[in-house]
Design a protein around this nucleic acid. Sequence first.
DNA 1: GTACACCTTCCGATTATGGGAGAGTCAAGG
DNA 2: CCTTGACTCTCCCATAATCGGAAGGTGTAC
Lengths: 285, 285
Amino acid sequence: MFRIGEFSTFTRVSVKMLRHYDEIGLLKAGFVDPATSYRYYTADQLPRLNQIIALKDLGISLEQIGELLRTELAPTELRGMLKLRKLELEGHIQREQQRLALLEARLSMLEQPVEGQGYAVVQRSLAPLLVASVRQHVPEVGQPITNLFEELESLVSTHQARAASSPLTLFHNPGYREEELEVEVAVPLKTVIPASARIAVYELPAVPQAACVVYTGSYAHSTTALNALLRWVEANRCHVAGPLREVYLRFGADDPDSLRLPPAFLTNDSEQFVTELQLPVQPHT
Amino acid sequence: MFRIGEFSTFTRVSVKMLRHYDEIGLLKAGFVDPATSYRYYTADQLPRLNQIIALKDLGISLEQIGELLRTELAPTELRGMLKLRKLELEGHIQREQQRLALLEARLSMLEQPVEGQGYAVVQRSLAPLLVASVRQHVPEVGQPITNLFEELESLVSTHQARAASSPLTLFHNPGYREEELEVEVAVPLKTVIPASARIAVYELPAVPQAACVVYTGSYAHSTTALNALLRWVEANRCHVAGPLREVYLRFGADDPDSLRLPPAFLTNDSEQFVTELQLPVQPHT
DNA sequence: GTACACCTTCCGATTATGGGAGAGTCAAGG
DNA sequence: CCTTGACTCTCCCATAATCGGAAGGTGTAC
């Protein structure tokens, strides 16, 4: 039987935390003196505590750990989780690196004078466009969207209905933009093809007036371009009248004629990409 | 001028957060209607917000970001921070992997029956030992300790005072073990050498009774060994009477005779290491 | 002119963790 | 046997960044 302080020094878990684990039932003290309420721990409890801190280091919340330990998890299960977590961690690292790239773009933005960032914003109208599209909530722009494009393109190609213009993404104002991002990825069609539950086939409405800007380079630069767009909108005293569209004019540098490659977001070697942002606007108020 | 919701959708910062940033003065709304308290944002504020989220993604707290932006940071400075952060991130990744290794050890512990974990705990006495030592708070076991050993060994070798026994670490109960770990790393001496402010030279007291266990392999296994030790202490109804000692009997597999290599913690290829844990105990109560 | 989307403030919750107050307990030494 | 000092108890509060919700006011489009 060890007192809480001793147990704390050997397990390197703070007294506060041991008490906390006791409270939430994650690791109850082995014995509690009914007279003094002193907690006493036994060596038998060490394995469980070790499990707990191992799982905690895996990034699992205490609540989930409690559930896991309640089910007396088989070692193989743990192994599996370990592997899974390892993968997850690697993916995490990758995403971190992407973030760094994006961030680099954001920072480089600051190095130039804020005003003339060299983005030529033009106002024009957008023609209606027959498309096949998937609309979906995604946690963030990137891989998921590329996957959606792959799905769409493969479907459309089986019907040989692909029109020779660029694929695009529409960013729908998702409620008040808490939580997730609602995107609609769309590829142009020359003929109507059967829709499905997931995939809609319809005509994107014409837009009488849109502020448009073309940017080159990876997705990381889109922030800057959007910035220019909004600045234009403000300067011209219009207001936004529809979801932002992002049109992938050129992507896949080696194969500029192929429209069938989905855009590769956030890759490093994407400096040759050409993208247009289109923002529907209405003049005046 | 954009209303908060619109600004939110385009910057992908939630309305709640925009209001929060306004409150704490990180990004004040460009204009607040005095009658309605409506917040209005301008395109001019986009760069600043982009800075904020860039820095936030760097892992910097909002408070610090505020300070940074107040000083109108030079771009080169930002570059530097970026590089720094990148390094930091890589280090972080490395540590994560170490943690995974340690964790693997913890988990594998579970795969064996909890009882006989094959650790032979013996009780014996420890002789007094003249040492040079550094006592210091460290955030975690690992690199810092290795460095301390290097420092000690190099000092001792200039005096040619090294005794031919193993270096060790003492883990002092650091208060109640909140915050940091207080370790004392020590190398044995055959003669007294001058002490300094950092480095103490004295005789470690003899310990009449200590529970000892030898384990092989990397530091990751020490948890298990300590576990066995505490179990023994409990079973033999003694209690702990001093700081835990960790004696590095063999380390640096290629050069078993060299006592001058500091132990390499948490490395992968350390399966040949031999370490003894010694825990001073007192019988009975 | 009414509905509906949007905005406001205020209050509370989250998760893992620690600080501190005020009071009780244990063990060792006088 | 009593004091002392280290230890423990419970309770309350705080953090940082973020969200949820309630109650009430605003703007605008049909």
